[in-house]
Nucleic acid binder design. Structure first.
Lengths: 345, 345
DNA sequence: GCTGTTTAGTTAATCGATTAGGCAAATAAT
DNA sequence: ATTATTTGCCTAATCGATTAACTAAACAGC
């Protein structure tokens, strides 16, 4: 087992002090008036030995870790994993590493992990907050730690938030339905008071009121998320109980999946028996037959904004991002599932 | 900004030494003969202040970090993110954190990140190795660091590997095709010499030879992975060039997606014009019309085995896992895409 | 009363870096 | 020639924990 070499070993071997080596390694040779000759001697020897400074020690001394903590609802969710991937890519370029973790939207898990992040002294936080995390986030702000929230936020907190216009996303989808003459439009969402879901609901109700429609809403408990079959069963029941529904909007990607399964099980034909739009696009929606219309979130832009805001703090004047809410627009990707099939109708 | 409290602050406030506090906090009170009275006094005060030990300092001293480094091909890939999610869940229970990163199967990125993991002193490594990472992995072994590889491995290295029977997975799929009387069966794979792809190819050729069939193979460059459209175009070309093909097997999930798109663009009907099987199942395959037959990898089992092997080293007698290759079985999930449609044929 | 053993802690070195402050030698200024 | 400045590098404290080695007091045994 190759013994680890420390900066002191390097120093001893060259008969200089550890401080000198440290200065050279941190590019402060000129600033600290180390001669060019010495600098070369050290650099050469360091390269030859393949010495790598111990980040843990460095982190302890400087209080910086070059790590960003990222807390999402679930890394297996394609929406979050796609953003995670983009964020990671950008972080990598700036010599930061990402430390992901999933909360499953549970307050306790989120608190635990956030604690672990703090203990590890991560330099910045990217958080998709579950309910009840206000205090912890306020704590980060109080301690002057850079935080960026995305997907949802707490209106009461002075954080930097990157979100999409959930209200408008749903509203656009509704207008599309109405334009194609659908009158009885269902909305399947989850029981949640978080901003993103609340805004989606508002968008639905706004459209319903504006157009004088009858609302048909089904709320699924969030706790059912791991149990796809149960969600499918509930949606099936909802559609059976409300046979008038001729179009339905699903408020999240996993609800859409279960909803499509429910529709399949009921033997209904899309879009002739029932039209469908999902919130959150999916690589596969274009391949479905019929292809599925979706409200697409701008994944690339979200990732870019998240990183831009966070990096401005990390590399800049160490200030907090400050209270700022950046609202990005969604895009309705119109496919076959939301318009009557001209061939058969 | 709340000043951070250290173990010395605690000690001073209680008029004891830092060592005593440390012993109590690490549950060594009895072993180190600290009185119950003192123990309670310290615990109470620590709880009251909400003191949390600095993990970085602890890590520097002990050389342990309670972090596991996980290197996958791409965190946005549903196969890897599902495994990551499971692994994370188990690690969490054992008080370990996971540090993910994506390599995009590039040697240089993988080396970089592995270096960062080492610098951070992660306690264990879970790796899906890109080509050319042999030396670095051997280096981990030489330094007695626990490593588990999965999905693919290097036959020359004495590592613990968790893989699936890729050969048999493909072979089963081929047998299924043959059973349903398909004779001209295409195989779309990527240009790669890594074990998992090599074995899938072997499975195909074995079946082709055994049944006396004509091989139709299309190799896609791995570098095209980010460019879905190009892959789609190549597959389209392949199918057009080989009109005899009546069934096709895709060797990875993203090839299947592009392949389905190609088939859609060609206006072919599945399974009547062309039958399809994909390697790697997908949440959505059951919802496609027709639903897509797939070779499912046992995600849960893979994650369990990975963690079991790694944890045995971490919590146990600090030995390496040793050379051991655990081969799990795939399961052919038969759906509509691979058998002639009884209604119309 | 003197030695040996427990009890209940304490002291100080250590992990591997960073960095403010110091100091001797060389060079410049007067 | 003497003082001032610059050059070039070193000393030692520090970050916040862990832990081997030690000690002082209390108690036991003969």
């Amino acid at each position: 087992m190759k013994k680890k070499v420390s900066i002191h070993d390097i120093a001893k071997q060259l008969n200089v002090s550890a401080a000198t080596v440290s200065f050279v390694l941190n590019g402060k040779a000129t600033e600290k008036r180390i001669s060019g000759e010495m600098e070369q001697r050290i650099l050469k020897h360091v390269k030859q030995l393949g010495y790598r400074p111990n980040r843990v020690a460095k982190s302890l001394r400087t209080g910086k870790s070059k790590i960003i903590g990222m807390l999402v609802e679930g890394i297996a969710d394609p929406f979050f994993s796609a953003i995670a991937r983009n964020v990671e890519e950008q972080a990598y370029k700036l010599d930061y590493k990402i430390f992901y973790a999933s909360t499953e939207n549970e307050t306790r898990i989120a608190k635990d992990i956030l604690g672990a992040f703090r203990d590890t002294q991560v330099d910045g936080y990217i958080i998709v907050p579950p309910p009840g995390l206000e205090e912890e986030i306020q704590g980060l702000i109080d301690d002057n730690l850079p935080v960026v929230l995305f997907d949802r936020y707490f209106p009461g907190l002075a954080t930097c938030n990157i979100i999409v216009d959930n209200f408008d996303g749903v509203y656009q989808a509704m207008r599309h339905f109405v334009k194609h003459d659908y009158k009885n439009i269902g909305f399947v969402t989850i029981h949640s008071t978080q901003t993103q879901m609340r805004d989606r609901s508002s968008g639905y109700y706004h459209a319903v009121n504006e157009k004088g429609l009858t609302p048909y809403v089904k709320m699924i408990g969030f706790d059912l998320k791991p149990d796809q079959e149960k969600i499918t069963a509930e949606i099936k029941q909802f559609l059976q109980d409300n046979p008038k529904i001729e179009a339905v909007l699903f408020a999240t990607n996993y609800l859409a999946i279960s909803g499509l399964e429910a529709i399949k099980q009921l033997g209904l034909s899309i879009p002739n028996d029932i039209a469908v739009i999902g919130f959150d696009d999916n690589t596969h929606f274009s391949l479905f037959s019929p292809s599925i219309t979706a409200v697409a979130q701008p994944i690339r832009e979200i990732s870019d904004q998240v990183m831009q805001q966070l990096m401005a703090c990390l590399t800049g004047n160490e200030k907090l991002p400050g209270k700022k809410t950046i609202v990005l627009q969604t895009k309705l990707i119109i496919r076959e599932s939301s318009q009557v099939n001209k061939l058969t109708s």
